[in-house]
Design a binder for these strands. Sequence first.
DNA 1: GTTTTAAACGTAAATTTAACGTTTATAAAA
DNA 2: TTTTATAAACGTTAAATTTACGTTTAAAAC
Lengths: 230, 230
Amino acid sequence: MTYNHPKLLVAIDCLVFGYDIKENNLKVLLFQRKVDPFAGSWSLIGDFVNEDENLSDGAKRVLEKFTGLKNVFLEQLATYGKADRDPGGRVVSILYWSLIKLDDLHRDIANEHGAKWFDLNKLPELVLDHQDMITLGARQLIQNAKTRPIGFELLAEEFTLPQLKQLYDAIYGKIIDDRNFRKKILSTDLLIKTEKKDKSTSKKGAFVYRFDAEKYDYLRNQGYHLDLNV
Amino acid sequence: MTYNHPKLLVAIDCLVFGYDIKENNLKVLLFQRKVDPFAGSWSLIGDFVNEDENLSDGAKRVLEKFTGLKNVFLEQLATYGKADRDPGGRVVSILYWSLIKLDDLHRDIANEHGAKWFDLNKLPELVLDHQDMITLGARQLIQNAKTRPIGFELLAEEFTLPQLKQLYDAIYGKIIDDRNFRKKILSTDLLIKTEKKDKSTSKKGAFVYRFDAEKYDYLRNQGYHLDLNV
DNA sequence: GTTTTAAACGTAAATTTAACGTTTATAAAA
DNA sequence: TTTTATAAACGTTAAATTTACGTTTAAAAC
């Protein structure tokens, strides 16, 4: 070791958003801390970083442990480093945020780890500064929804326009005009319309779409900037 | 100590942007590393975090040491944590970015610490992942310039509209239409026009303005969102 | 006075946004 | 076999904003 300086505990906390298409609301994955102080309190999922582990790999490890998921939206958000933020010791925590498609399977996996999905709007009291983290993440979610195609991370591969609109209603916390929403999203030309119709919510049925991620990535590299501010 | 987990070195790196109103370009403060590995290479200003020091206080300490400045724009930007990012040892580095008003005084203070201001577009080779940090910060600067009143952090308290426009030209990397820029910035009603004129660049002279930070903060709390996308 | 020119002010077409109204496809009821 | 009901799909228009320019003005220098 070349450097001679104080070393600190470094942790990852992972703010996982899920969208419940049946209940039409956003959820956050929490678990009950197993270690003191505050054992039993609700907290974001997380763990300490290993000596030889990249931060991003630590985040992936935490996420997979609690959800069984790999290769989903997972980005770094912020780092919390007040010296006294954790009475258990000096811990610097790097917050990641993740977006996943909620289904019954993930509920089960979460349950196995003492984790549970909570409505974003009905959260229990949280340990340490984790409520701040969620507040920040919720802001980030809204902000990013306007400028990046993150909505598709929260829905299944195939979705209808009414479903997509409902999701954005939930994210923005307001009822978007469906005609204007449809116009805006279709004008991007980033949705692929399939032949299929989903008749689960109407007699007429709603056409099923897919997001053209490849086209988006290409355009993004050309300097394109998505705008879903409706 | 309650927790029993690996501890890591934690550092602060500080990306300081300055605007040179005479040269009309953006500059970045760099210094020559004093410690091995890579002693003598150019790097962002930075230091290791102390055991009992808040991260934000560490950032303030670093910034003041190299610029003599307190109470300037200083925000956390991202954290770099690849296990092998520094051959000298496992170091997690939290990147902060800062905006300051460049003047001769700061050049002198910087010099005393072996630091120097470089054109953002003419940077030397940088140590470790510091070039990535600057790339990220430059993107953040452009992005934030569109949605937050950060331009005023880079100019003196009092400035003219032509000066302000030149700054945004430099940030956006393009020539903005001066008539549209004037319209947009004045329509926010966040500039206070003084009686003074600056005649250093024209016979007619340009009126001197001040940014109404108090009004902005108030509006911001009311949900107002600045838009300087020209 | 006249000239010069950065600064300040103005305008109009094109585009985008916002707020609505109308038509259509289909299952279920009459 | 029509009729009805309604979510989904499509359309319209006024208002606001953006974009791309042209014009006037203030003051020093000639």
